[in-house]
Design a protein around this nucleic acid. Sequence first.
DNA 1: GTAGCCAAGGTGACAACGTCATCTGAAACC
DNA 2: GGTTTCAGATGACGTTGTCACCTTGGCTAC
Lengths: 227, 227
Amino acid sequence: MTLSTECMMAVMVTRAESAAVTRRALLDAAAELLDLGGPEAVTLREVGARAGVTRGAPYRHFAGKDSLLTAVVTEGWERIGDQVHALRTDPALSASEKLRGALRALIGVGRDQPHLYQMLFRRPGHRPEELGEGLDRVRRQLCGPAGDPAADRVRAAGRFQDEFLAIVAALVGERNTRHYGALLLSGAHGIADMELSGHLGTDRLRSTTDELVDTLVRMVGDAGETT
Amino acid sequence: MTLSTECMMAVMVTRAESAAVTRRALLDAAAELLDLGGPEAVTLREVGARAGVTRGAPYRHFAGKDSLLTAVVTEGWERIGDQVHALRTDPALSASEKLRGALRALIGVGRDQPHLYQMLFRRPGHRPEELGEGLDRVRRQLCGPAGDPAADRVRAAGRFQDEFLAIVAALVGERNTRHYGALLLSGAHGIADMELSGHLGTDRLRSTTDELVDTLVRMVGDAGETT
DNA sequence: GTAGCCAAGGTGACAACGTCATCTGAAACC
DNA sequence: GGTTTCAGATGACGTTGTCACCTTGGCTAC
C-alpha cells in the first residue's frame, strides 16, 4: 500500500524537486535523532535510512556530519528568531513582558530540545580553544559564500540577537542595550544550561527557572531606570 | 638517560604503587588530551600510549571512556572548590570581593580549559533528556558506593556549591542565599559559556566578562540590601 | 529525437574508535 | 613453594565517518 501510494506520488518529479525533498528529509531525520539521543546518536547511516537513502547519500547534500548538524542548528536559531520576532511585534505586550517572554522562550527550547539547545551555544567548528574575536571573526571569514553552513548559522544567530536586542533597547535605552543585552542573554542561557546539567532544582539551588528570570528582569529594570 | 633514570627509580615498587601511578598517568593524559582537542580527542588508545600502557589497560582502572572523563571532571570540580575555599577563608577580602573572585575564578576556568569547563556542566551520564530532579536524584542513586565516578563528581560539585553559597550568604543573608546563589552561579556560567561559544565580544554584544560580572554582582548587592 | 552531460544516489573499502574475551607474568598471600 | 590475584598485553568484533568509484535517470544542446 505504501509502495503503491509512493509510486502514484512519485509520478513526474523533477530532479531538483527530488533533491530538495531528500535534503529536507535528511535534516528532519538528523533533528529527530539529535532530539532523541544527542549528537552521538546522529549517525549518517541512520539519518540516511530514515530519509530513505543509503549512508553515502548525505554527502551529496552536506560536506559531512558536522555540516549536517550545523544546518540543523541553523534552523533552530531561525525558529527562535521567529519566536522573538513575534514577541517583539506583538502590540498587546509591554516591553518587560516581551523581554520575559523572550528569555522564557529560550529556556523553553532548552527544556523541549535539550540536545539542540546545547548545540546552539557551541562554536560552529566547535573549537573553543581559540577564543579570538568570537563570532565576528567567523562571520568575516565566512560571510562571502552564502549557503555555507557555518556562515548561515552565524547569520541566523545574529538575527535572533537583533530581535532580542530591539526588545532590550525599549527597556534600558539605546546606550545600555549592548551591555544589558549581553547580561540578560548570558543570564537566561546560564539558567537554561544549569537546569539542563541538573545543577538547578537541587537541595542547594532550589529556585525555578521562572523565578530566576523574574528576578533577573526586575533587577535589570531597576538598574536600567537609575542610569 | 630518561630510561636509566626510570630504571633506577623503578627499583622496588609495590604493585599497588605501580597501579596508582598508572591511574594517575591515565588521568593526566586524559586531562591533557581533553584540553587539547575536547572529548572527541580523548581516545583510550592515545591516553594509554601517553601513560605508557596499551589500549586495554585503562579498563583496569576505569569502567570505560565515560568513567575516565567523569574522573577528570571530578578533579576539575575539586580544584575549583579549593579555589573558592581559599577565597572564602581569606580574611583580607570583603564579602563582595570574595564573590567577584569566585565568579571570575569560574569564568577563568572556562577561558583556560574550555573543554573541561564545558564538561563541568554536563549531566554525569550526559542524558539531558530526562530532567527529573537533577543532581539530587543522581546523588541519591549513587550515594552508596564511594569511589563511584558519577557519585564522586556530584560530591565534588556539591562541595564547590557549598563554598560558593557560604560566600553568597554573607552578602544577601541566609534566607535569600539559595535564590540569589542560583542566579549568580547561573549568571556566571552563562557569561562563561557565551564567551566560549563566541557569542560575547561581537558587534552586537560587546561587553567583557569582567564588566558583566561587575554589573551582576552590583545588581544582586542592591537587590539583596532592599530585601 | 537523440546523443551526451551531470548530479543524485548506491556500493565497496578503509582507518579509527570503544569494548570485550582471553592470555601472561609477576607480585601477594598462606 | 604453591596458589591466588590482578595489572597489563593482545586479538578480535561491531560501529562509525569518510572517500573513491560506479550506476542511473532526468536535463540540455543540437
